[in-house]
Design a protein around this nucleic acid. Structure first.
Lengths: 209, 209
DNA sequence: TAGATTGTTAATCGATTAACAATC
DNA sequence: TAGATTGTTAATCGATTAACAATC
């Protein structure tokens, strides 16, 4: 599907474009030029046109872009319309916080279930999502294809949990633990949220001059 | 304190250097060359030496770097040793998850208190940190200097909470809400954790080819 | 001393910006 | 048609990598 190599920098900007276009659409805006979009994102129009040209031609001279159409194109590029299934490994505080506050559906993921250790959460539902004992993972996976897993387990079991997920054929791991995962399978993508690095960058900015 | 302009890319790598050096120190490693450090981080030795040269000369020809000394230098650069005080605004699930799972002290911040709306958490302690009603914020700030605030309040009150924090002279906001904060004061730094953008980048990587 | 490794300068590479012909 | 704005090519800028004299 990719026409050429797409740089990391471009990939990190696509979600921002998508988010802004969604806002615009929801605000009833029909068309937007690269100049307008750039202004609202603090970028240059050139950069946006250059970025989009990695994937095709979505605009029209003299008009600009149709907001809804461009949004849909970027959704496809990002894979938002692929109907990926997701599970949460570890329904502790962080896992629960995501279940309550994060809109998986709005990002294209169907959250099917959560898996937990020996706590009273097992057997209940959180925001309508069933919580199973983690020993039921393989059984569950046999009946539902799992594309992505959110890793919010305690540090000590992070690696073994990731290994189980990879064995089940999961294609993406959203890693909230502070454990570095070494995955042999190159088709498995890992995206890490590293709170510590983020806070240290803030600390640096606060300390400047 | 800054010798020259330091690029965003460098700033984002510094926390990784710090983290790796901390690991090495804890493993009892005394010295490391730029080549070894680069290998363990998947970077080039040139890049590490170039990055460090933004801040000074910390190595020794023929020897490399003393792990503990370099770690201490980077700690200073990052501001980890400044003794910043922090509070958490919003002790909901996400705020609590941070209190239980994130080691503020290890990143140089003293977590003093959390502030919450009308819930049963108010008046209790979580992991030894007192939880006050959010109306007590100004009173608390009058007695304790607050350098940084973690913003984990519900979306609707994110902006007004940020405004109150800025008015109190907070120098950094760690923003976990999905609300874009527009801060007039240029001395206030905002670092955003954007779950959605992260997940969409993962989705893209899962969808490639 | 000989080997190792730094800090820095120069070369390369890649990403961003500018310019503009094409055209809606 | 005239004005606007695209997609793309060329120019610029900045970041990464390579090379090496200095020196521990």
């Amino acid at each position: 599907m990719k026409k050429q190599h797409v740089s990391h920098a471009v990939i990190r900007r696509l979600p921002r474009y998508y988010r802004r276009l969604t806002n615009m659409r929801d605000a009833g805006i029909e068309r937007v030029s690269s100049t307008k979009l750039a202004e609202s994102l603090g970028l240059t129009a050139s950069q946006i046109r250059q970025d989009l040209s990695c994937f095709g031609e979505f605009g029209q001279q003299g008009y600009g872009y149709n907001v809804e159409a461009l949004r849909a194109e970027i959704a496809t590029i990002l894979g938002v319309d692929r109907g990926y299934n997701a599970i949460i490994m570890g329904a502790g505080r962080l896992g629960q916080a995501l279940m309550y506050n994060f809109n998986f559906a709005a990002h294209g993921f169907n959250l099917l279930a959560a898996f937990e250790g020996d706590t009273e959460m097992v057997g209940t539902e959180i925001t309508g999502i069933p919580v199973y004992h983690h020993s039921k993972l393989e059984e569950f996976a046999a009946e539902h294809p799992i594309h992505m897993a959110v890793l919010t387990v305690p540090q000590p079991v992070a690696v073994e949990t990731a290994d189980r997920l990879v064995a089940l054929g999961v294609k993406g791991i959203w890693n909230f633990t502070h454990v570095k995962l070494v995955i042999n399978d190159p088709t498995v993508q890992v995206e890490k949220i590293h709170f510590g690095d983020s806070l240290l960058a803030l600390s640096y900015m606060m300390s400047e001059e």
